[in-house]
Computed example of a mutant assay.
Amino acid sequence: MSGETVHERRRAAATATVGAAAAAVAVGGWTLVADAASHDAANRWVLVAGAVLAYEVAYLAYHLDADGVGSAFAPPNLVTLVRGGLYAATAGFVFVAPDPTIRWVPAACYGAGVVLDYVDGSLARRTGRTTDLGAKLDLAFDTLGFLVAPLVAVAWGRLPVAYLSLSAARYVYRAGIGWREYRGRSVGDLPPSRIRRPLAALQMGFIAVALAPVLPASVLHPLALVVVAPSLAVFARDYLAVTGRLGSVPSVASEPTDEGGSMK
């Protein structure tokens, strides 16, 4: 048996294992929502959650070669995959009415994912198991969390639509960079910053609080506009920096890197 065949079989087995776990999450979530709310709510939940889970499995399968198939099951990456499942569970509630029996669930799922975001990074550094695959998964799931959780919060009336500008900011940023590269223009390195990580932590915490039925929407809506403004300003500043508008662009363009929550 050739080495390539062995690798492909291991890759398929790893993908199938993660896919089976994702299917278990979908079935378990459907059962819980059906018991707590209704079958109709459960069907709407699994439609969205299942789509997000499928995306996550496909993303993992596509990037498995980053460090070898075995890296998918390194402890830090397993924590990241659990975080992805929690974000998928959160996403499922975007078309589910905030019934009193389930109104705490999105906050609990997203909040647990935020906690695990710090656990996987700390575990990777402590065990020396930092990998390219882990970095890709971490950034992809961070971006996913910043997309789906605010969508649920807006759908439930907990946050204003304007807060979704944070969800769109990363995609606008990448589109701008891609368009610049397409035209053959240089793109510089993302400058170091002391505020990206604290701002990302602020947004994560605020989203979790917004999802929880604690503060009234009348307080959250104006507060959201104040909280989101600094992060949007950082996105704008970083784009100006990497395109040379705030200084010279390095001669060798490089991919912007994430600094623990820059969402780029």
Score class of each variant (00 low, 15 high):
Leu60Thr: 14
Val172Arg: 12
Leu116Thr: 08
Ala210Asp: 05
Ala201Trp: 04
Ala22Asp: 02
Ala149Gly: 05
Asn43Trp: 14
Val214Gly: 08
Ala36Trp: 02
Arg185Ile: 08
Val82Ser: 08
Glu255Phe: 11
Cys109Tyr: 08
Asn43Gln: 08
Leu86Tyr: 01
Arg180Phe: 14
Leu137Glu: 10
Pro230Ser: 12
Gly244Asp: 02
Met1Lys: 08
Gly205Thr: 14
Gly70Val: 09
Ala91Phe: 01
Trp104Asp: 12
Pro106Ile: 13
Val242Trp: 01
Ala49Ser: 15
Ile177Trp: 00
Ala34Val: 04
Asp238Gln: 03
Arg170Phe: 06
Ile177Arg: 11
Arg180Asp: 05
Ala12Pro: 00
Ala58Arg: 15
Gly28Phe: 14
Thr17Ser: 12
Trp179Lys: 10
Ala41Asp: 14
Phe95Tyr: 11
Leu211Thr: 08
Ser248Phe: 11
Leu199Val: 13
Asp138Tyr: 01
Thr31Ser: 13
Lys264Ala: 15
Pro75Asp: 14
Ala58His: 03
Arg183Cys: 08
Leu64Trp: 00
Tyr173Glu: 12
Arg44Met: 10
Leu137Tyr: 03
Arg185Asn: 09
Thr257Tyr: 09
Gly205Ser: 09
Val6Gly: 04
Tyr171Lys: 03
Ala23Gln: 05
Ala108Ser: 10
Asp99Cys: 08
Trp30Thr: 06
Lys264His: 11
Gly28Gln: 06
Ser186Lys: 10
Arg125Val: 09
Arg194Thr: 13
Val161Glu: 06
Gly134Cys: 04
Arg194Met: 07
Leu215Arg: 07
Ala217Pro: 00
Ala135Cys: 07
Gly85Val: 14
Val57Arg: 08
Arg44Tyr: 04
Gln203Cys: 13
Asp132Phe: 04
Tyr118Lys: 12
Leu220Lys: 05
Val148Leu: 06
His39Met: 13
Val228Tyr: 03
Val52Lys: 00
Val252His: 07
Ala89Gly: 15
Val252Ala: 13
Thr257Leu: 13
Leu53Asp: 03
Leu225Lys: 01
Pro106Gln: 09
His7Thr: 12
Ala21Arg: 01
Gly184His: 08
Val115Leu: 15
Ala21Asp: 00
Glu255Val: 11
Leu240Phe: 06
Val152Pro: 00
Leu123Pro: 00
Arg103Leu: 06
Ala49Val: 07
Val96Thr: 07
Val234Met: 08
Ser71Lys: 10
Thr80Lys: 06
Ala42Lys: 04
Arg194Ala: 12
Ser71Leu: 11
Gly84Asp: 07
Gly85Thr: 13
Trp156Leu: 09
Gly111Pro: 03
Leu139Tyr: 02
Asp142Pro: 00
Val187Arg: 02
Ala14Ile: 04
Tyr163Pro: 03
Glu255Tyr: 07
Val6Tyr: 14
Ala24Glu: 05
Thr101Trp: 01
Asp142Cys: 03
Met263Trp: 12
Tyr62Asn: 09
